[in-house]
Amino acid sequence: MAVKNPVTIAAAIVGIVVVGWFVYSSQQSEEDRIRQRLYDLAEYVSTTKQTGDSARLIHIAGLRKFFTEGVTVQVNEDIPKITGRDNLLQMAHIALQHEPGLTVAFTDISVTHNDNTQQARVNTTVVVTGVQSDKARSIDAQELEMALVKAEGEWRMETVQFVKVMELQ
């Protein structure tokens, strides 16, 4: 039976492309999972608006699942390296106590992952937006290099290093 209606043909082609795109996008690669992990972390930190130490502590404890137990965070040479998940969460608690309205976002996420290993490297820019006392928005952005490992089925950060874009001697 010959299909004479070009609109039907065009609609069929568009339908096939759309269905194919959905099928393709539903198959998440490890790189996609790592990106989603960072988005989840950003969303989790950004929702830390609880007042009161107890509520905030409970919420921050939920950050444990994003980091390995021995995670290290190096901001720069002038600030001592933060070592250990508990220390990191303590620092996060103090930081969020003073800046409860912080929102965090990761952009330009570049993932390097070897299919044979449970390790990955990520290069990304983290954008942190806060609200100052005079209601003005403050914004800071930093480039990060991270090493992640897959533990218990989830990707967790093992090392986090801030990258200096502009250097001074």
């Binding site: 330009d108 990304t124 820019t125 952005a141 990060l144 874009v165 502009m166």
Partner: peptide, 13 residues
């Protein structure tokens, strides 16, 4: 414009 990890966020100097 000075890029960081990409071009989405840049320094302007």
């Amino acid at each position: 414009g000075i890029r960081m990890a990409g071009n989405s966020v840049m320094y302007l100097k």
